[in-house]
Design a binder for these strands. Structure first.
Lengths: 238, 238
DNA sequence: CGCATCTGCGTACGCCGTGCGCTAAGCTGG
DNA sequence: CCAGCTTAGCGCACGGCGTACGCAGATGCG
């Protein structure tokens, strides 16, 4: 380490970065965190790594964010902000649109599912609140009481979260492995075949899924469940 | 550190623990891990802590378990083993029973929800497989094709997982805080009130929930959603 | 200009998961 | 009964983690 030089009395040599923009903003940090999570997965988000991506030290982030957990809550709410607030005529179509959008967001950001599982939905992010209010409105206008609309929203959200979580876990696993989904299936196949051999129904299912396109079968399972749910809700209306 | 003593040539002094039972078994480790998770939450499970609970060093566990992740998969499957495989007459009642049992297991072991979110359901634990096969059978006997039974199982499971995950996250948060649920609500109240004040429907909902028993309202939301889902599925049968 | 305030950072602490190589206990074949 | 091999458990060490703390420089205010 060289001895610290005497300061050079020149305007040009002076550091002079005069905080044109504060260089580190909560917003900036959160959007970069989302990027890092998307690109490298939840395991690879550390304050040090995030800091260095922003050209800053790890502990500098703590000026803008209380803890890593808080940062993750912010990231979650950020993604919720991507969701639309559609308001078409027919309630089923509207709910369908929101449900599809939520699932799409989770599949775009697979780390979301696990984090939602830890944080729950009670954490009061403004975008989450806005989305909830909006969905309550949709069901109320469809003819549900506020009480029942609340339960309906919980039900639909739970279904979307639950089914997308499984898909997201699968996506994360494949992404971590660095292989393609097809390769991963091939590799898993022998173990899976052995595991299900005592279960005739599972065996038939696995065999069928081997030849299917994985993402297509996810789509159809999602749509099937969503329609059943909407059917069940619709039956409550006069 | 004292110099190592010369060995005492007596039968009684010799260590003599002759591996009556191997003292550390995969089974033993997994059940203790579940206990630790239940008592202290997922954040407080570390290999060192688990080891010391078993009177062993942290790295000794690795003789029986490949990694912490694998241990968690084993713990998950262990809990799945608690679930019943009911086989009564009416399919709705049977599905209801399984759904309630799964939710109860998640609420008993709140760490499960988050771990399921990371691992997905594709991890081939024998107890998970048995449960899946059983549910496929229930729906098939009810009159669904195997194809549709598979989607129905996914749907019901997704709903139960999704809604229980939210409840479990809430329970974990309360447990971590060391306070009672009621105290926690009181403390959160001012912030919540401020957050929802621009959203009339949410405001009404929050106000109503303040006086309700939290676990009761969880029960009723669960039952509502489950019945709607079963209604929607039943409509597919002749 | 002087001072209070705020931002970023270096250092450090106590954890974590886990790879590696040692010891000693049991098993096996002669 | 011995020699050799397998195996369970452990101590140590490495690199990484979240984050508390206090300093240094820049900024904004009187």
């Amino acid at each position: 380490m060289p001895a610290d030089q005497p300061p050079i009395p020149s305007v040009w040599a002076r550091p002079q970065r005069k905080r044109e923009q504060p260089a580190l903003t909560r917003e900036h940090i959160v959007t970069e965190a989302v990027r890092l999570l998307d690109e490298e997965g939840a395991d690879n988000l550390s304050m040090r790594r995030l800091g260095s991506r922003l050209g800053a030290g790890a502990t500098s982030l703590y000026r803008h964010v209380a803890s890593k957990d808080e940062l993750l809550e912010l990231a979650l709410d950020e993604v919720y902000g991507e969701l639309p607030l559609p308001d078409a005529g027919e309630w089923r179509a509207t709910v369908r649109e929101v449900a599809h959008a939520l699932r799409a967001a989770i599949l775009r950001h697979p780390w979301m599912a696990a984090k939602l599982g830890e944080a729950g939905l009670a954490y009061l992010g403004p975008n989450v609140l806005r989305q909830s209010e909006h969905m309550l409105g949709i069901f109320e206008r469809a003819g549900f009481s506020l009480d029942e609309a609340d339960q309906a929203v919980s039900t639909v959200t739970a279904f979307v979260l639950g089914i997308s979580t499984s898909e997201a876990a699968w996506l994360s696993m494949v992404a971590r492995s660095g292989q393609s989904a097809q390769e991963w299936i091939e590799r898993l196949w022998p173990a899976a075949e052995r595991a299900v051999q005592d279960y005739p129904r599972l065996r038939a299912r696995y065999a069928a899924q081997k030849v299917e396109d994985t993402s297509k079968s996810g789509d159809s399972a999602f749509e099937y469940g969503l329609e059943r749910l909407l059917d069940g809700l619709q039956a409550r209306l006069p």
